Amino acid sequence: MNYDNAYERVTQLKKFYKSLLWFGIVAGIIFFNDVFENGKFDFSLFDGSVILLIWGIILTVKAVKLFLLDDEWERDLMEKELKKNKKSIHF
């Protein structure tokens, strides 16, 4: 991995962790606000629960792309495909 790729990955990780932190803060505020007002947590559109659900799905997709489908995974898959299509030379 060269410097530019490493810098880009660190930048993406930093953005992801910031988003995760903000998600946790907002989810905590919404959760505790519902608990103190109603005595329980209700799933409703107007209280922000659906927004948190959508935000959580987006964060999950970003995490999969960042941690599972990274450059190394792509490189390994490319090498496997190249080995499949590589024909041996007969002399």
Rank of each mutant, 00 (worst) to 15 (best):
residue 12 Q to H: 04
residue 60 T to K: 11
residue 26 V to T: 15
residue 63 A to P: 05
residue 51 I to H: 04
residue 75 R to V: 09
residue 61 V to W: 06
residue 51 I to Q: 10
residue 46 F to T: 15
residue 11 T to C: 15
residue 29 I to F: 10
residue 11 T to V: 11
residue 11 T to H: 09
residue 19 S to M: 09
residue 29 I to Y: 07
residue 45 L to T: 12
residue 35 V to T: 06
residue 45 L to S: 10
residue 9 R to C: 00
residue 41 F to T: 00
residue 66 L to A: 02
residue 40 K to I: 12
residue 48 G to R: 02
residue 16 F to C: 05
residue 28 G to T: 01
residue 42 D to S: 09
residue 37 E to N: 08
residue 29 I to V: 15
residue 67 F to M: 03
residue 12 Q to A: 10
residue 50 V to F: 11
residue 66 L to H: 01
residue 42 D to M: 04
residue 51 I to N: 05
residue 49 S to P: 01
residue 28 G to C: 00
residue 67 F to D: 02
residue 35 V to C: 07
residue 44 S to E: 08
residue 57 I to R: 08
residue 30 I to K: 02
residue 40 K to P: 03
residue 56 G to A: 14
residue 62 K to H: 15
residue 39 G to I: 01
residue 71 D to Y: 07
residue 74 E to H: 05
residue 15 K to V: 10
residue 57 I to V: 13
residue 43 F to R: 12
residue 59 L to M: 12
residue 59 L to P: 15
residue 46 F to D: 15
residue 72 E to D: 15
residue 48 G to I: 12
residue 75 R to S: 12
residue 9 R to T: 01
residue 47 D to Q: 15
residue 36 F to M: 15
residue 61 V to F: 11
residue 54 I to R: 10
residue 74 E to C: 00
residue 48 G to F: 05
residue 19 S to H: 14
residue 35 V to Y: 11
residue 35 V to D: 07
residue 49 S to N: 01
residue 47 D to H: 11
residue 15 K to E: 14
residue 37 E to D: 11
residue 35 V to P: 11
residue 41 F to R: 02
residue 19 S to I: 14
residue 16 F to V: 04
residue 39 G to V: 03
residue 52 L to S: 13
residue 59 L to E: 15
residue 50 V to L: 12
residue 24 G to L: 00
residue 46 F to Q: 14
residue 75 R to Q: 14
residue 36 F to L: 15
residue 30 I to S: 05
residue 66 L to Q: 02
residue 60 T to S: 13
residue 59 L to G: 13
residue 22 W to S: 06
residue 68 L to K: 11
residue 24 G to W: 05
residue 58 I to H: 04
